[in-house]
Amino acid sequence: MPGPLRRLLVKPELGALVGAVVVFAFFAVQSETFRSPRGIANWLDPASTLGIMAVAVALLMIGGHFDLSAGVMVGTTALTVGIVATELRQNLWVAIGVALLLALAIGFLNGWLVTRTGLPSFIITLATFLMLQGLNLGLTKLFTGTVTVGGIDDVPGYGAAEWVFASRVSVFGAEVRVAVLWWLLFTALATWVLLRTRFGNWVFATGGDDVAARNVGVPARRTTIALFMTTAAAAWFVGTTLAVRLTSVQANTGIGQELIYIVAAVIGGCLLTGGFGSAIGASLGALIFGMTQLGIPYLRWDADWFYFFLGAMLLLAVLANRLVRRYAEAARR
């Protein structure tokens, strides 16, 4: 294979880029709403909150780990914002700060347990997932007597918080939610960190082979813990966005989403074995998800087709990733 072509194929996000173009073309040709500025703003919305999580989850996967508690943590942080603000009667920003500290603590605990015990992160974060699921329901009922926390918009500080987390920006005549801008910013930031900083080099190395990484002086443990904390911080950002945007939070928020984040990251070229992947790819994976989720109803198809479609994309992605890995790693073994 000639050099430039070979190099392109080893780009993790290539498959997701092709996939995104094909999916866009597929829906855009058939649905005028889908390709209108308003339609685009509509499908960018689910892509954005998913994308913020997928980027963080992709970093963690490149670093060699999974976080099954990432979805429920969105709920935990959203509920914390709501309960601290409305039940404990704090300024909304205080509530948001408390939720951030809580998220970072949970992320730290996940990372610390994984690095200390050497157990698969899959099982450690499954335990965290279950515990948080129980706590979310139990504490919400304890505080509110129901399974919902509401009235977040009546709390002092809501105006500024709404501007940061839930405002709309006019782009080409369409009202785009500010989360889309945050998503683009986080994708760019994560890409820069991965490819242009020492920490990014350590992430790839820790995920590729943590023993080898430690042997050449990479602080592999600290890198892993930092990645779990990053995922938790992303969950906090999305949880806060949901709490501020919806002004009320259900106790089961986020449950089940953790697998969707992983699906987006894998469609974006992340290897399940770690050490390879990209933040842009994960964002493209989220974009495919958003386009499909809204494109299917635009075509007046049954919504059930959505999951079939997503599964097929995932299968295609893992098959393509397998080829990449075989090429890049085993070519000269």
Binding site: N201, F204, A205, G208, D209, V211, A212, A213, N215, V216, G275, F276, R325, A328, E329
Partner: peptide, 9 residues
């Protein structure tokens, strides 16, 4: 002896 290198990097 195992060189401590990351194959995919």
């Amino acid at each position: 002896q195992d060189l401590a290198m990351i194959p995919l990097m």
